[in-house]
Design a binder for these strands. Structure first.
Lengths: 161, 161
DNA sequence: TCTGAAAGATCAGGTTT
DNA sequence: AAACCTGATCTTTCAGA
């Protein structure tokens, strides 16, 4: 589909702008990075095609959606399990916001978001029922302190249009 | 600044569209939710003003940015520490992608992203130096299995325009 | 020097805001 | 009505034959 993923400095600056505001116009981006709008569009299209950009999304206040309960779940499996097997077992559980295999005693750490404690309990039960889980250990989130996008860059508060 | 945050079903459907693609036009959103473009714009503006929408952002492949090393860090503090104090102590450490106080033995769980193991080590040292941390326990991520936005809705792969 | 690929600028038309 | 998106076309640069 497309070649390797080589980002020059202009690409990174475009990503910085788009990370702060995914709805920035090509003109706005161009005036920051010093390019014309069509030139910016070509680069953005290329970043999308090369999968460097995974998508454009909106950060919604979880409280506004009624998703107020959250937990970190450490999962311990029986025997050796391939990461791909775990990914396939869990990808259909929408309450799982992130999952990763880790070093240490646990095999994987999941982050689970639910509407209330009952909902959370059902989600964790479903996780434990999924293949080769021996046991799990959950801690419930009390306060969210920091929540960023993962590039050291946060979305910026939208301005009035 | 603005009234309370009351979302009707149309608002939620607008948020669903914008979560899947933050660059959707008002027309596209309108054709999904059955509203005219100006009507959609008024609602989106209201959602932004009421802070139900925190921002629009772009999901970048971390590997493309060279941020390939990641860890979960459990932090144990001495004595009782207010969440706001922790938030203030850590907000200036950009490697921290998320942080939350939790139930259980640990006081907080952080997720830290860095460019390599050395960078990760320096970030963790900085965290441990920040006020009232007694000790910490880190596990390093081996494979990322799932990564979603946190509303049970993922951004969708952008289409060619 | 010539040629082709890559990257940017300008412009026009249809669309979105 | 004004701003924006986007395809078409033209220019520049640069590497390799």
């Amino acid at each position: 589909m497309s070649g390797p993923m080589v980002l020059d400095e202009t690409d990174e600056r475009i990503l910085t702008v788009l990370t702060r505001n995914a709805r920035a116009t090509f003109n706005e981006i161009g005036s920051v990075v010093g390019l014309s709008a069509p030139a910016v569009k070509r680069r953005v299209d290329r970043l999308v095609a090369s999968k460097a950009i995974r998508g454009f999304t909106t950060v919604v206040d979880p409280a506004a959606m009624g998703w107020t309960t959250e937990a970190y779940v450490s999962v311990f499996c029986t025997g050796v399990v391939a990461p791909e097997v775990l990914a396939r077992a869990w990808e259909d559980i929408p309450e799982i916001v992130s999952a990763a295999t880790v070093t240490g005693a646990a095999d994987a750490v999941l982050r689970v978001v639910a509407s209330d404690v009952g909902h959370l309990e059902r989600a964790i039960e479903r996780i434990r029922r999924s293949g080769s889980v021996d046991h799990s250990d959950s801690v419930i989130v009390l306060s969210r302190l920091i929540e960023r996008t993962g590039n050291g860059r946060e979305p910026v508060e939208p301005q009035d249009s």
